[in-house]
Design a protein around this nucleic acid. Structure first.
Lengths: 190, 190
DNA sequence: GTCTATAGATCGATAGAC
DNA sequence: GTCTATCGATCTATAGAC
C-alpha cells in the first residue's frame, strides 16, 4: 500500500504489524528486542534503522497508528451527519471491525495497562478522555442532560473496555464478544 | 497481627504491602528487584530469604493473598444466607471496601493484564471464571434463566473491571468510582 | 537496508560473612 | 535475618563492514 517503488527492504506496514503482535502478547516491558527482531524477520540492528528510538519509538508509532485507525473506523462516525441512533450504530460497527470482533487483544489496552511511567502513556490517557467527550456529545444530541450524557458515555466505554480486559484476563474471548454485542444494540437499551 | 514474638525482622504483612505497591505501579515485568528491595526497606539478598522463588514467588503470594481477601470480603457473601438482593448488596459493599473505593489500582487486574505467559496467570484466569459462576448462581436464585444469569454475571464483572481498567488507563479514578456506584445500586436496575 | 560483533548497563539470583 | 560482593545472563543500543 505504501510500498515505495525501487526500494526493497521490508514493507513498513508489515513490519509494524509483526511488532504489534509481540507487544500485544507480552506487553511493552515483557517484549524484548531479540523477540521483536525475530518476529520482524530482521536483525536487532536493522530495527534501529526503522525505529531509531528503539522500543519506545516502535510503541509510539504503533499507538498513533492505532488511535488514527480507531478514529477513522469508529469515532469519526460520532460527529458525522445523521441522527444520533444512526451515528452510534455506525460507530459500533466500526469499532467491532477495529477490534476484529473482539478476537484479538486491544493493543491500546494492553500497552495502556502497563507501566504508567512510559512516555507514550500520556498519549493514551488524553485520547480516552477525548473519546469520552465525543460520546457524551452524541448522547447530549440524543436528548440527555450534560451530566447524564457524560455518565452514559463513561459507562459505555467502561463496558466496552471491560469486556476487552476480561477477555485477556480470562483467556476467553467471550466477554469481548458480549460487550461488542451489547454495544451493537445501540441507544435503545443502554 | 501475625508478628511472631521474640523474632525481630520485618513484619511479613508490611513487607508484602510494600512489594504490592511496586507491582501495582509498574506491573510485574516493569518491577525490578532493586526497586522492590528499596521499597521493602531491605536488601535484594534479604528479599530472597523471605521469597526464595524471587519475583515470581512474591507475585504468587500476593495474588493468593488478594484472592483470599476479595473472597472473604466480597464474594463469600454471594453464597451466604438471605435473599439475593441482600447478598448482592453485601457483596457490593465488600468489594468496594476491597478496592478501597476505587482509589487504588486493582493488583489482580494489573498483574493479570501483563504477560500471559507467567506462571501465576493461570491462578487469576480460573479465579475470574469461578467468580462469574458465583454471580450467575445468585442471579439464577433471583429468578433468571441460566443463560440470562450467566450473561448478567459477565456484564457485571465486565462493568466492574472495566471501570477499574479505565481508571488506570485515564489516570483518573472517576471511572472506578462510577462503576462501584452502579454496582451498589444492586439488582434493581442492572 | 541488513548484517556481525560488541559495548555497557541492568537484570535476576547466589555465595558467604556477620 | 541482613548485609556486601559478585556471578552469569539478558537487556538495550551502537559501531562499522558489506
Amino acid at each position: 500500500m505504501k510500498r515505495s517503488p525501487g526500494r526493497p527492504g521490508i514493507d513498513r506496514e508489515v513490519l509494524l504489524a509483526r511488532i504489534a503482535e509481540v507487544f500485544r502478547k507480552h506487553g511493552f516491558d515483557g517484549a524484548s528486542l531479540v523477540e521483536l527482531a525475530h518476529a520482524s524477520g530482521i536483525g536487532k540492528a536493522s530495527l534501529y534503522h526503522h525505529f531509531p528510538g528503539g522500543k519506545s519509538d516502535m510503541a509510539g508509532v504503533l499507538i498513533r497508528q492505532q488511535i488514527a485507525s480507531v478514529h477513522s473506523q469508529a469515532f469519526s462516525h460520532l460527529t458525522a451527519a445523521g441522527d444520533p441512533d444512526q451515528r452510534l450504530e455506525r460507530f459500533a460497527r466500526g469499532f467491532e471491525q477495529y477490534v476484529d470482533g473482539g478476537e484479538r487483544d486491544c493493543l491500546l489496552l494492553v500497552l495502556g495497562m502497563g507501566n504508567p511511567e512510559h512516555d507514550y502513556q500520556s498519549t493514551i490517557t488524553t485520547q480516552f478522555d477525548d473519546w469520552a467527550q465525543a460520546l457524551a456529545s452524541l448522547f447530549e444530541a440524543d436528548g440527555r442532560k450534560p451530566k447524564a450524557a457524560r455518565k452514559q458515555a463513561a459507562e459505555l466505554l467502561s463496558n466496552l473496555y471491560g469486556g476487552l480486559a476480561l477477555a485477556r484476563l480470562t483467556g476467553n474471548r467471550r466477554a469481548a464478544r458480549q460487550a461488542l454485542k451489547k454495544l451493537g444494540r445501540g441507544l435503545s437499551r443502554n
